[in-house]
Amino acid sequence: MGQTLWFASRATGLVSLLLLTATVVLGASHSGRVATTRWPRFTLHAVHRNLSLLAVAFLAVHVATAIVDPYAGIAWLDVVVPFASTYHPFWLGLGAVALDLLVAVIVTSLVRTRLPLRVWRAVHLASYALWPVALVHGWGIGGSDSSLSWVLALEGLCLAAVVVAVGLRLRATHPDSEARR
């Protein structure tokens, strides 16, 4: 097997970051009521949801390969309990934090219609914390990969995309929200 697992873990981690970024961007746009005739609200919503589920799938591979690979000696517990691992306890711990939050966000969304809106919304807002934590986790734990210019560029683009999307979301107005102020 050699380094295959390790590469797989790093690659899926990077892809997960891309997917999470797209999810956050679409989510912010959706709640900011961005829509066009070609991208009506429900498509935005559907793609947001499906990308988030795809991200979960990639994260599952990312986590599983990291554990199965004997190189770093990451235990199952380390990926859910933050800062408990021996391997890069801080950077890996951030990953565990992000994973825990993501699980909460996904689970509450799956049963959303059965929850009070306030509960779902509070948990869902954790996405805006989860994403930067995941980004920093990847950057910090990536070792030599993180100094590769294309990786840095990718992370920079992701950061820019989220900053722009969140900025637009904060500036978004709608007569209904205005009237309720």
């Binding site: 009506p40 429900f42 919503h45 809106l117 709608h174 209904d176 929200s177």
Partner: peptide, 12 residues
């Protein structure tokens, strides 16, 4: 009171 005019219902 809950409805904030997102309009997805009319799309779907």
């Amino acid at each position: 009171i809950m409805c904030h005019a997102h309009g997805l219902c009319a799309e779907l």
